[in-house]
Lab assay of single mutants.
Amino acid sequence: SHCAGCKEEIKHGQSLLALDKQWHVSCFKCQTCSVILTGEYISKDGVPYCESDYHAQF
């Protein structure tokens, strides 16, 4: 499978399933500020955001 963030193949190591896609753990980050999302996040149109950036933009 391929990472939804960087589009590279996910080989051995940690990956996560979010928004119905596979991601490298380090690629699942806020679209705006690039903080790596480990806990709470909000998505809009399949794109992840941290809570503060989501509320600031939408």
Rank of each mutant, 00 (worst) to 15 (best):
K11P: 14
S34L: 05
A18C: 10
A18L: 07
V47D: 06
Q31W: 06
T32L: 07
W23T: 02
C27F: 01
V35W: 01
V47H: 14
E40C: 09
E40M: 04
P48A: 12
C30P: 01
G39S: 09
Y41V: 05
S43A: 14
V47S: 07
Y41N: 04
D53E: 06
G5T: 07
L17G: 12
Y54A: 09
L17N: 13
A18E: 09
H24F: 00
C30L: 00
F28E: 01
S15Q: 13
G46A: 08
S1T: 08
Y54I: 07
C50Y: 02
L16G: 09
C30F: 01
F28M: 05
I36F: 07
W23K: 03
G5D: 09
C33L: 00
H2F: 15
S34Y: 10
G39V: 06
L37K: 01
A56M: 05
P48V: 07
C6V: 00
F28G: 01
G39N: 09
G5C: 05
G5W: 04
C27W: 00
V25I: 10
C27P: 02
G46I: 02
Q22L: 08
H55A: 14
S52R: 12
Y54D: 08
K11A: 12
L16D: 06
I36K: 14
A18P: 02
L19D: 15
F28W: 08
S1H: 06
S43V: 12
E9Q: 08
H12F: 11
G46K: 05
H12A: 13
E9N: 11
G5A: 09
G13T: 07
Y54H: 04
F58D: 15
E51Q: 14
I36G: 09
G46Q: 08
E51M: 12
E8N: 09
Y41I: 04
W23V: 04
G13L: 08
H24Q: 00
K29E: 02
G46P: 01
C50V: 01
C33G: 02
S15L: 08
S52P: 12
K44I: 08
Q31S: 06
I36V: 13
K29G: 02
F58Y: 02
Y54E: 08
E40F: 04
I10K: 01
Q14P: 09
C3Q: 01
K44R: 11
A4W: 12
Q22N: 09
T38Q: 15
K11G: 11
H12D: 15
G39E: 13
S15I: 15
Q14L: 04
L19A: 08
K11R: 10
E9S: 11
D45K: 08
L17Q: 12
Y49W: 06
W23C: 00
H55R: 13
C30V: 00
V35M: 06
T32E: 09
L19Y: 04
C33K: 02
A56Q: 12
K7M: 06
Q57N: 15
Q14N: 07
Q14D: 15
E51T: 06
Y49V: 05
V35K: 09
G5R: 06
C6Y: 00
I42P: 04
G39Y: 03
G13A: 07
T38W: 03
H2N: 15
Q31G: 13
K11H: 14
K29R: 10
I36W: 08
V25Q: 14
Q31K: 15
Y41T: 06
A4G: 08
H55C: 15
C3K: 03
A18M: 10
H12W: 05
S1N: 06
K44N: 07
H55F: 12
G13Y: 08
K29S: 03
V25Y: 05
D53C: 06
I10P: 04
S52I: 09
F28D: 02
H12G: 12
T38P: 07
E40Y: 15
S26M: 11
Y49E: 03
D45L: 05
S26V: 11
S1F: 04
C30A: 02
T32Y: 05
S15F: 04
F58A: 08
Q22T: 14
H12Y: 07
C27T: 03
S1C: 03
E8P: 00
P48N: 06
S34W: 04
I36T: 12
V35C: 02
Q31E: 12
L37I: 07
K44Q: 13
K44L: 08
Q22M: 12
L17D: 14
H55Y: 08
W23I: 02
W23N: 04
E9M: 14
H55T: 15
K7G: 10
S1M: 03
K11Y: 10
T38H: 10
E8T: 08
E9F: 05
K44G: 07
S15T: 11
Q14I: 02
E40K: 08
D45A: 12
S52C: 06
E8C: 02
S15P: 14
C33V: 00
C30E: 03
S52D: 15
K44T: 09
G39Q: 13
D53A: 04
G5I: 05
K44Y: 06
V35N: 15
